[in-house]
């Protein structure tokens, strides 16, 4: 079996060889295009779309509506009607395991809606509600812009989650298992000049064991004579940005550090009298 990467087109067109060949040919033509090419798609998938859901309609974004039911009270048919089109259209909802649901594209804002379950008009008590000017009760939803930007939505959810609270130091008793980088943790703390108490230092868990990678010192490596003496071995990424030093000798302190610079690395030394 060859390592054929054109799985998608073959699966779609099945048996006929000429169609498969035609599909491959078209894919190759598409790959060869220069103008208008978004990204090459080796597997012939849909073109890469890099947006946050704001599709062809200006400002309209998808909103999920659900009607949940229990196993012993399953409705036969559910529709939803809402103020987004002035209550004009009864939209049928699709049945799934535990609910009926649908997705409607809406502009951000406030909307009222109602469900029709097996012919009866119903308001879901578990979703937001409001009364209209005629005194009727409807469900109500408020759509924000930030709900449709993926990373903004996730950041909001993270801030209000247990992990977010723990990282800000607000509730230290709660244990959380979502452990991001220390860099993410740093963004949540503020600078101070308050010295932690000795009691706090003693209660803390001990410092971590030093990783073996840090004990590999770049400048301690012997360079073979065939190499340029100014060329050092390629460091791995965890060795970068750390400070290495020589013992103070003849009243001179010597420090060094290696940083990434474009596709190379630079090691800088400082000789400083003390």
């Amino acid at each position: 079996m060859g390592n054929n990467q054109s799985g998608g087109p073959d699966a779609r067109y099945g048996g006929p060889n000429d169609k498969a060949g035609l599909r491959r040919h078209r894919m190759m033509s598409e790959t060869a295009k220069i103008a208008g090419q978004v990204l090459p798609n080796p597997d012939g998938g849909p073109p890469m779309i890099f947006d946050d859901g704001n599709e062809d309609k200006s400002g309209e974004c998808p909103v999920v509506f659900r009607w949940s039911f229990t196993q012993n009270a399953q409705p036969r048919v559910v529709h939803i009607v809402g103020s987004w089109d002035n209550w004009q259209t009864r939209i049928p909802m699709v049945k799934s395991t535990n609910d009926f649901s649908t997705i409607i594209d809406l502009q951000p804002g406030q909307y009222e809606y109602k469900f029709q379950v097996d012919g009866s008009w119903v308001v879901d008590d578990n979703q937001g509600k409001a009364q209209d000017v005629h005194g009727n009760e409807n469900n109500m939803i408020n759509i924000q812009d930030s709900d449709f930007a993926v990373f903004e939505a996730l950041d909001e959810d993270f801030q209000s989650s247990t992990a977010g609270e723990v990282l800000r130091g607000e509730s230290e008793s709660t244990k959380n298992h979502d452990t991001p980088n220390d860099r993410e943790l740093e963004k949540l703390r503020s600078f101070t000049q308050e010295i932690p108490s000795m009691d706090m230092l003693r209660k803390a868990a001990g410092p971590p064991v030093i990783p073996p990678q840090l004990m590999q010192v770049l400048l301690n490596k012997e360079t073979p004579e065939s190499c340029d003496p100014n060329v050092l071995p390629e460091p791995n990424h965890v060795m970068l940005n750390h400070m290495y030093a020589l013992s103070i000798k003849d009243s001179v302190m010597v420090l060094s550090s290696t940083q990434r610079y474009r596709k190379k690395f630079v090691t800088t030394l400082l000789y400083k009298p003390v």
């Binding site: 030093i210 840090l214 004990m215 590999q216 010192v217 770049l218 400048l219 301690n220 490596k221 012997e222 360079t223 073979p224 190499c227 060329v231 050092l232 071995p233 390629e234 460091p235 791995n236 750390h242 400070m243 290495y244 030093a245 020589l246 013992s247 000798k249 060094s256």
Partner: peptide, 23 residues
């Protein structure tokens, strides 16, 4: 470019060179 795994060293050079250490 020499590699990080190169651990060969001559005794004379080792005596002359000071050793770098972390922190």
């Amino acid at each position: 470019t020499p590699t990080l795994d190169n651990t060969e060293a001559s005794g004379a050079n080792r005596n002359k060179r000071a050793k770098w250490h972390l922190g």
